[in-house]
């Protein structure tokens, strides 16, 4: 277990260092996320009251779009000069590689969630009514989508049509997460009267299942 975690940490820290150096998150994904929020505002052409009501859903749609970029980037880093083969040759446990790469995506999503929260406060006039629910729901949803994204990224990569197929494979699977996370944030942002904690519990279960399934299946997916 210690070896698995230390190997996962090695992979995660490597991926995060690469993102820090390349600045893809700060220079490309983050502006894209903000742009999506602004465009939603233009498209709905609504007053702030309507935008506040739709803010939770728009927030998580923006997160999922950014997830697609993060997963594709994570795969591209390994395939650029066939480092993926190096990972296989190094003898790292596939589960550790999965957990490490998922952890790196998870951290990037948390940064984006912070930015998008600031975005909906500034552009839509939203406010966080339940800080603890906002935090926990944000964490478990980021974990759920990061692990599911990583799993489907490996699957699409194995099929050799990553860029075009990933959204088609991934987004339908994440539809329940989108619904749950939107309901949880409806409560956290005071947009609707729902039980956000019940939805957060479901999201946590999804995150545990996706993490476990991903750790078990990743080895088979990356093998020839």
């Amino acid at each position: 277990m210690k070896s698995l975690l230390s190997e996962a940490w090695l992979v995660a820290s490597k991926d995060l260092r690469i993102e820090a150096r390349s600045r893809v998150l700060t220079n490309q994904v983050a502006p894209f996320a903000v742009l999506v929020l602004v465009l939603f505002g233009f498209a709905l052409d609504a007053d702030q009251r309507t935008l506040r009501m739709f803010a939770p859903g728009l927030f998580w749609v923006a997160v999922l779009l950014c997830l697609l970029l993060a997963v594709q980037r994570s795969s591209a880093v390994e395939s650029a000069d066939d480092a993926a083969t190096g990972l296989r040759m190094a003898g790292l446990a596939p589960a550790a590689v999965f957990l490490g790469k998922s952890a790196a995506i998870f951290v990037q999503l948390l940064v984006l969630e912070l930015l998008l929260t600031a975005g909906i406060i500034v552009f839509y006039g939203s406010s966080v009514k339940n800080l603890f629910l906002w935090l926990i729901a944000g964490l478990v949803t980021a974990l759920a989508v990061a692990t599911t994204g990583m799993l489907y990224g490996a699957l699409a990569s194995g099929l050799g049509v990553r860029e075009t197929l990933l959204p088609i494979l991934l987004l339908p699977v994440l539809a329940p997460v989108l619904i749950g996370a939107t309901r949880a944030y409806d409560d956290a942002l005071g947009a609707a009267a729902v039980d956000g904690w019940a939805w957060t519990g479901l999201l946590a279960m999804f995150a545990v299942v996706a993490s476990t399934l991903g750790a078990l299946a990743y080895g088979a997916l990356v093998e020839d």
């Binding site: 880093v77 190094a90 790292l92």
Partner: peptide, 28 residues
């Protein structure tokens, strides 16, 4: 883990330094 394979690709990460790359693969 007991085999070193040099293929047509280098298997290095472009955004990491040379020393970081070699050190990463050693730790891996």
């Amino acid at each position: 883990r007991q085999v070193a394979m040099l293929g047509h690709a280098t298997g290095l990460y472009e955004d990491l330094s040379v020393a970081e790359n070699v050190s990463f693969w050693a730790q891996a």
